[in-house]
């Protein structure tokens, strides 16, 4: 660990933020086109975030602020762990469980801060978000266990580089198609894209955990959302689509994957939270188990 590592880490966070925020802006345009609108400028998302930072704000007590800082700090740290096209700020820290659990620090922080605001809608939103997490994470975890068993490594960058060099048929998405499908469905849940977005239902529970945020805390939450999107899409990209040999390939693949989720969610209705749980435990979990049994007991997928 030298100073260089930290500078790289800082740059990684910054780069991830800029990249994902631009992509979100572009995707707002894509969604607008789906709805036959013109849509905002591509850098609209930056303006929104900076505007939120520029406004005055309120606080409901120290845990409200502390939770927000812990959330964004945790997520920023997770971004540093993510290997991007083989590059890492801190080599050797990219174990898949470490990443998915450090991510949980951020989520816990956000939940804490939201519940600390004293608004019951925030608590309802958090309870839904946690339930949602229990729904999508289990099928995804089953697939991850299968991957670790198959490749005998839990490091994300190694899992990505194993898939490279043999064209797209080397991707786990094609080698383990069922697991690939499961993880893409789980990605929708992770990103909170429709149909799994009931925890931020704006009209029903006034945007759930976000209900009390305004000003800089709101800006932090938006930033958090962008970084979290980056982590989740990167994770799926590295595990199933071969990561990227170079930064450019990585970014192109990333953009395609993210835009795909966005387009699909643009035409989806919304699941109630218990429907989401039942769905995940019926279809994706079943598929994941079939995939796991095929790999572990029948040796398929090598």
């Amino acid at each position: 660990m030298t100073l260089m590592n930290f500078i790289y880490g800082f740059l990684a966070v910054l780069g991830a933020f800029v990249f994902q925020t631009s992509l979100t802006g572009i995707n707002r345009k894509v969604t607008a086109r789906l709805q036959k609108r013109r849509g905002p400028k591509w850098y609209q998302q930056f303006i929104d975030i900076f505007k939120a930072f520029s406004k005055s704000s309120i606080t409901h007590g120290w845990v409200y602020d502390f939770g927000a800082i812990m959330a964004l700090g945790g997520i920023a740290a997770t971004v540093i762990f993510i290997p991007v096209a083989g590059m890492q700020a801190f080599p050797g820290l990219d174990n898949i469980f470490v990443i998915s659990y450090v991510l949980a620090v951020g989520m816990l922080g956000m939940a804490m801060s939201a519940a600390g605001s004293g608004n019951p809608w925030a608590s309802i939103g958090v309870s839904r978000a946690l339930t949602n997490m229990l729904a999508y994470d289990i099928p995804f975890m089953v697939v991850v266990f299968t991957l670790i068993y198959q490749h005998n490594t839990g490091s994300v960058s190694e899992l990505a580089s194993i898939q490279q060099g043999v064209g797209i048929l080397g991707w786990n998405f094609f080698k383990l198609p069922l697991g690939g499908i499961v993880s893409v469905i789980a990605l929708f849940g992770m990103l909170g894209k429709k149909p799994f977005d009931s925890f931020i239902a704006p009209a029903e529970i006034a945007s759930g955990p976000m209900v009390e945020y305004g000003g800089k805390q709101l800006g932090m939450m938006f930033t958090l959302h962008e970084l979290m999107t980056f982590i989740e899409v990167s994770l799926i990209l590295n595990l199933f689509f071969g990561g990227g040999e170079t930064l450019l390939i990585y970014m192109v693949k990333y953009a395609i994957l993210y835009t795909f989720t966005n387009i699909v969610s643009g035409v989806m209705p919304r699941f109630k939270i218990d429907q989401a749980v039942t769905f995940f435990y019926k279809v994706p979990l079943g598929l994941a188990f079939i995939q796991g049994l095929l790999v572990i007991y029948l040796g398929w997928g090598y």
Partner: peptide, 11 residues
């Protein structure tokens, strides 16, 4: 109206 950067908000 989103082309002006406007949009509805929940709270």
């Amino acid at each position: 109206m989103e082309q002006l950067g406007m949009g509805p908000m929940a709270t």
